[in-house]
Each structure stands twice: as structure tokens, then as C-alpha cells.
Nucleic acid binder design. Structure first.
Lengths: 206, 206
DNA sequence: GAGTTTCTTGGACAACTGTCAAGAAAATCT
DNA sequence: AGATTTTCTTGACAGTTGTCCAAGAAACTC
């Protein structure tokens, strides 16, 4: 709230924010590779085009950097699944598209998501992360809820679980698949698809 | 001669193993308090009755210590829920007991479980943790499966999801409840109970 | 009780951490 | 152009980390 925001309020807000985002992107890359526990500011700087000192020019401390990274990650994650909702024509198609999208995400963006789980876990220990983590979690919960609601509409049925329960169920499926997939289990993605496709109809009134 | 030396060596082995367990228990206490990222060997030793140097007498390095702790934790966690299965008289009773047990665990042993999730997450980054984590995960999966199977038997119905899916669903519910409960959300435990009681019947054939 | 093995301590080490400040470099302004 | 502000580098700091080791304490054997 002191020097950093002062610099922001001066003039080249865009450039400042742009560099922040650039540094945060490098940080995200490094974080997703090494995890929270083993990522240092020097390691982050080394994987960027700048020296380690510059991080404290754009971020007050390590916590602010990590928090900013988490929020940047959120922006990437939010609008990803809404296209599935938009293009769904039938309940079955939505069901298959959704399970396929989760499997693809697990496969292609696995290391970004293990970072998300890592940071969410840090929130279990460090209070300073909780607010942002809960906010992102809520965003993901709403995203899942849009899927489930649309599925219920297309099925002309009513939902029998709460928003948070629906999110927790699919999150559990995804997290387990991620661990198994990263561990090299070949069936991990197939099991994820099958689990999702089996679970989704069960959330509706029979 | 062989009997004597056997007895001696066995006694030494027992004592050695006993101290290992003792140190690991201290380590678990510290780990569950601080989390993997912020727990150092000196911190562990300080919360025990020994100096920091002794840890390298009983454990080769930090990884072996953590791995041993994880396995010790597993031993505590395995047989906890089997009593519910043993004493269940009706499907409804099992359902309520199970959801209540999860809520109680979340409330009373929350910090031990956040450590479990922390270590499981480390396995997403560090290969050396994976084998043990997957082994513990399998044990928990079987525990959940015993609950679900018994519930199906008492309901005289068949299960419609796989073992791993059933585990993933309840694990997701528990993990979300843990985050919310530690964040001070009053409804977290109630929502957990409700979510579990709603989910369990859905796993059976309608 | 002497001798041997087992256990424990506390200190030393090198590497690493987040943080900061002084100044070089670059960009901007007058 | 020079002056001034913004950006970035470099090196230093104090603290912490995992690891190792010599030396002493304790337990045990004979």
C-alpha cells in the first residue's frame, strides 16, 4: 500500500501492470514446475529475462507475488468451460463434452492444476492465502454449477445436490485423476471420463 | 549362540524402531502444524526431546523421515472407519454414522488431514513420494469401498460406480469441507454431512 | 570395573533463502 | 542537449536450511 501503489498511481500504469503480468507468468511457469515449497524468488527470476532484484520492485514481497500469480491463474481458468455450456444441444452431448474437457485439461494443463491444488493446500496452513483461494474456489464452483444446471435443463429434470456438493464431487474426481495421470497410470483419463459421465446423471432427480 | 545374538539384535532393532516411531510422531505433530513447506528438521527436533543431530542417526535424510511419517500416519488412519461397518444394523444408520464420522474427523483431526493432503500434493511434484502416497490412497479407497459395499448390502441394491470413483467423490467432499471448516465457515460440517448423506444413496441402482 | 558398542549432543559447514539498498542503465521530460 | 525520473542490476545482509562429524555420554558385555 506504500511505494508500489504510489508508483502505480503515477503515470505508466499500463507498462507497470504489463511487467507485473510478465513476471507473474514466468513465476507461474516456475511454480507449476517445482511447486510452492521448492520455488524461490531467485529461481523465478532466473526463468525470466530479469534479475532477482526486480521482483521487489514490482511486488512488495513473496506473498504478494504468489497472490498475484494465483489471481492471474484464475483469470485463465474461469471462462474455459463456458463454451461447452454455450454449444451444448443435448444432455448427452453436454455430458460427453464435459467429461472430455476435464480429461483434456488433466492431460494438457496438468502441471498448472497441480499448482492450483498446491496453493489451495497452502491455504489450509497459511491464513494469508485463504481469501484468494476461497474466491477462486467459488468461481470454479459457479462454473461447475453452470454445467450442472444446463445439464438439468436439457434433461428437463431438477438437481438434487447443492452447488458446493456438486463442485466437490467433480473436483474430487479430477484431483484423483491428476495424481494417477501424473503417476503414469494409463487408465487415469479413461476412468475420469467414465466417473464424470456416471456421476453427472446421478445429480438429477431420477 | 545364534539365539543369543538374535535376541540381542532383535532387541536393538526393536529399540531402534521404537525411537524411529517416537521421532516420527514428533515430526508428525510439527508437520501437521506447519505443513510440509515450512517444517525444518531443527523445528522437528525442537518439538521432540532430542537434538537436531539425532535425526540423521535414525533417518538417512529428510525424505526418508517424511516417508516414514507418512507410513506411520497411514497406520493410524486405516482401521478407523471399519468399526462403523461392523456395528451398522441398517442402511440408514450406516449412512448417518458415516457422514457423522467424516464430520467428526474433519473437526477433530483436521490438522492431521491437511498434512495428508499436503503430502499427497507433494507427490504431484516429487516422484519420490508417489509410491507411498499411492499406497496410502489405495488403502483409503478400500476403506471407502467397504463402507459403500456394506451400505449396498444393507440396502439390497447394487453399486453403480467403480471403487476409485466412489473414493474420489467422498474425498472431494471431505477436502472441501476441511478447507471451509479451517476457514471458519460454520456450515462446513453440516454441509459435509448433508453432502455425504445425499451422495451415498446415489451410488446405488435406483 | 574395564572395554566395547550404541546413542546423543552441539557445533561447523556450505548452500540457500527473502530482503534491501546503492548505483548503473534506460527512458522520459524540459 | 542536460536533467530527472523510472527501471533494472548487482552485491551484500542476516537468517535458515540439510548435512555431516568429532567428541562425549550412556548402555551394555565380559
Amino acid at each position: 500500500m506504500t511505494e508500489v501503489t504510489d508508483r502505480i498511481s503515477r503515470r505508466q500504469v499500463d507498462k507497470f501492470a504489463e511487467r507485473r503480468a510478465q513476471l507473474a507468468t514466468s513465476a507461474l511457469r516456475t511454480l507449476s514446475e517445482l511447486g510452492y515449497a521448492r520455488t524461490s524468488l531467485r529461481e523465478i527470476a532466473q526463468n525470466s529475462d530479469f534479475s532477482h532484484g526486480v521482483l521487489h520492485y514490482y511486488f512488495r514481497d513473496k506473498v504478494e507475488l504468489i497472490t498475484y500469480c494465483v489471481k492471474l491463474y484464475k483469470a485463465e481458468c474461469v471462462t474455459r468451460y463456458d463454451q461447452i455450456v454455450a454449444t451444448a444441444r443435448s444432455a448427452d452431448q453436454l455430458r460427453v463434452d464435459f467429461s472430455q474437457a476435464l480429461a483434456t485439461t488433466c492431460d494438457e494443463d496438468g502441471s498448472m492444476h497441480r499448482l492450483w491444488y498446491d496453493l489451495r493446500n497452502q491455504a489450509l496452513f497459511e491464513r494469508s492465502f485463504r481469501e484468494d483461494v476461497l474466491e477462486i474456489d467459488k468461481t470454479l464452483e459457479l462454473m461447475i454449477w453452470r454445467i450442472v444446471s444446463t445439464y438439468a435443463d436439457l434433461s428437463a429434470a431438477t438437481i438434487t445436490v447443492s452447488r458446493s456438493t456438486a463442485y466437490a464431487l467433480f473436483d474430487g474426481l479430477f484431483q484423483q485423476a491428476l495424481l494417477r495421470h501424473l503417476s503414469g497410470e494409463p487408465k487415469a483419463l479413461d476412468d475420469l471420463r467414465e466417473g464424470v459421465e456416471q456421476t453427472l446423471p446421478k445429480l438429477l432427480l431420477p
